[in-house]
Amino acid sequence: MTHGFDADYWEDHWREVGARDGHRQAPANPYLATGTEGLVPGTALDAGCGEGAEAIWLAEHGWRVTAADISAEVLARATERAAASPAADRIDWRPADLGTWEPVGAFDLVTTHYAHPAMPQLAFYERIAAWVAPGGTLLVVGHLQDPGGDHGHGHGHGHDAGHGAEDDQPPAHATVTAASVVGCLDPDAWEVVSAEERSRTMEGREAPLHDVVVRARRRTSHGAAAS
């Protein structure tokens, strides 16, 4: 199936999810906790925040979060969900097309979890990487590219919105490898902390999720070795 991943696509997608799943809430992606371990909380961007699980987790762990998504439908769901959190005032929910939106400043952490923009996937990662402050961290969680073409997971911003439905698989152009993500990062400007291809199971799904998880630190000065 071809997906344009434009605003209309995501509005329709999240309306369908809401109609099917009601108020069922997926937890934050488990790679977020491991990927931010040891970091001092500061400012964070959740690029393609979906239903807000990761943004809320970050806020509850001391981060001040800008949570951006192209879908007004899902931002309304996320805002409602965050209302129950004591850290709700630490989140700025931002309607934004991440292919054209420009933040005012840089962030100590930029993270994305399976967000698929209308632009090419790797170009999207390059774009959001530019928003990481010197000394800051980029954490990318994406769908693993399968040479056999059987991706085996849904694409709903990384949460289990798709329930593994056969017609809800990410197309090849929305998948990546750890090497391709690392290849987007200038080694003079970035220290790659970890780059993994992993699989995990999720409750309610028969097929495992196959993931790419890359954490990188922006060097404090271009061309300088990390301290």
Rank of each mutant, 00 (worst) to 15 (best):
D6Q: 08
D8S: 15
Y9F: 15
H13G: 00
H13T: 09
E16S: 15
H23S: 12
H23R: 05
Y31R: 07
L32R: 08
A33W: 04
T36W: 06
L39W: 11
L39Y: 12
V40N: 11
T43F: 08
T43A: 13
G48T: 10
G50S: 10
E51L: 01
A53S: 14
A55M: 09
W63Q: 11
R64A: 13
T66H: 14
A72G: 11
E73F: 05
V74H: 00
L75R: 00
A84G: 12
A87I: 10
A88S: 14
A88T: 11
A88L: 11
R90K: 10
I91T: 09
D92K: 06
D92I: 07
R94T: 13
T100M: 02
W101E: 07
E102W: 01
G105L: 02
G105D: 15
G105Q: 13
A106H: 05
T112M: 11
A118F: 01
M119V: 14
L122D: 07
L122R: 10
Y125H: 07
Y125K: 00
E126Q: 15
R127W: 07
W131D: 03
G135L: 10
T137W: 02
L138A: 01
L139S: 04
V140D: 07
V141S: 00
H143K: 06
D146Y: 06
P147Q: 12
P147S: 14
G149H: 13
G158S: 12
G158C: 07
A165V: 02
D167C: 09
V176L: 08
T177Q: 01
A178E: 03
A179P: 01
S180V: 02
V181D: 00
V181Y: 01
G183F: 09
D186I: 12
E191C: 08
E191P: 00
S194Y: 02
E196V: 11
R200S: 06
M202E: 14
G204K: 04
G204T: 04
G204A: 08
G204F: 03
L209V: 08
D211Q: 04
R215H: 05
R215K: 11
R218K: 13
R219H: 13
